[in-house]
Amino acid sequence: MVPTAHYVILSALLFTTGVVGVLVRRNPIIMFMSIELMLNSANLAFVAFARHLRSLDGQVFVFIVMAVAAAEVAVGLAIIVAIFRTRATIDVDELNVMKW
């Protein structure tokens, strides 16, 4: 059986990958994918801890997170589409009507 710590370390690595992705990439869709990676790294930690603790709370939380992430995707992509319609670009460095 894989020890819980391994799962948690993997989830921490995934989370860090996501954070770095948001900070260095400039395409909002890639940035958003990195955020999804962060959410899913939390999911991995939840199920790992849930198995370790033999409690269902963590498993339930994962379902809630998935539902919320789906709602977030819907809104996020709608915003990106609205921007692309008026500007034909979505690069965040060109979204500079206001100072960043």
Partner: peptide, 25 residues
């Protein structure tokens, strides 16, 4: 404004969520 709020807001939500996972552990 919407895109910036969305990206940084969900970024922050992810931190909160990972924090909750760690507290759970």
């Amino acid at each position: 404004a919407s895109l910036k709020y969305f990206l940084l807001g969900s970024f922050a939500s992810a931190f909160l969520l990972y924090g909750i996972a760690l507290v759970y552990g």
